[in-house]
Design a protein around this nucleic acid. Structure first.
Length: 262
DNA sequence: ATGACGATTGAAAATCGA
């Protein structure tokens, strides 16, 4: 079988229900992983999604902050969550398709402003979150798995608009990139987006503060699609739907897509 | 320097995002 998947930091699923529906109508991924839904589970608007065929949902909600959800046209089974770094936040949930593929949906902490754990507790929490992800994957040895989400790190030089200018900016500092690489290595994860699009500038997030985000194009690739090496060759057709950043009342993130033949 | 904004809570201004 073949299924398509998208990951999107939606920045409030209730406020942006109209553009979620637009994405489902126009792009029709089989599975949509959302982050920053900023809603308790029982307040997520599900009727419109169900009307479009997305009758399955696995969700971890939280009032006001964070929150992740997996919407699916295909049957999915809730296979749990982990509270890495013991933050008490809803930042991870996993679901399994009937063919045995596990999908992890992550919202890694942003990490605050200053990239030093001594002066900024949030930065330390971000690093700790990644370290605990790493240790978990070392012990779990994931197989037949896909990991998506807003990992809040742009690892490569061509994942940011200016490598030099962002070296000391949280999301692109060497220590964060190192932590992400260790996490990726621990699970044997392959970056499917960069497997498909190995060359060139590629972003999935543009700040709300830019006067003209499209013209300035000062973006970062914070949103990722990974797969374990046993199935990474089944991944293809990766793309970023940049147009969604320009939709009515947009999220500051654009959705990232991939298709898997499994 | 992108910090020029936007969402949430709670009912104004603070907090968070990255």
């Amino acid at each position: 079988m073949s299924f398509s998947l998208a990951t999107w930091n939606i920045n409030s699923v209730r406020l942006r229900e109209p553009i979620v529906l637009k994405l489902l109508q126009e792009e029709a991924p089989d599975v949509l992983c959302l982050q920053e839904i900023k809603s308790p589970a029982d307040k997520v608007p599900t009727q419109g999604f169900a009307d479009l065929g997305y009758t399955h949902m696995v969700v971890r909600g939280q009032k006001g902050y964070n929150g992740v959800a997996i919407l699916s046209k295909l049957p999915i089974r809730d296979v749990g969550d982990k509270d890495f770094a013991s933050l008490g936040h809803a930042r991870h949930v996993a679901a399994q398709l009937e063919n045995g593929t596990t999908i992890h949906n992550f919202y890694v902490p942003a990490g605050g402003d200053v990239p030093e754990r001594e002066v900024n507790e949030k930065f330390g929490q971000k690093l700790d979150y990644l370290t605990e992800m790493r240790d978990w994957f070392r012990s779990e040895k994931p197989e037949k798995s896909i990991l998506v989400g807003d990992l809040n790190i742009a690892p490569r030089e061509d994942d940011v608009w200016s490598h030099k200018k962002l070296l000391k900016v949280v999301s692109h500092t060497p220590i964060e990139v190192e932590h992400l690489a260790e996490t990726q290595d621990a699970g044997g994860w392959v970056d499917v987006t960069r497997q498909d699009i190995p060359e060139g500038e590629l972003y999935s997030w543009w700040s709300y503060r830019a006067k003209d985000w499209d013209a300035a194009d000062k973006g970062r690739r914070l949103d990722h699609v990974w797969a374990t090496s046993d199935i990474s060759n089944a991944g293809h057709s990766s793309r970023v739907l940049r147009a969604a950043r320009g939709w009515e009342k947009p999220s500051d993130h654009a959705p990232v897509f991939a298709t898997f033949d499994l």
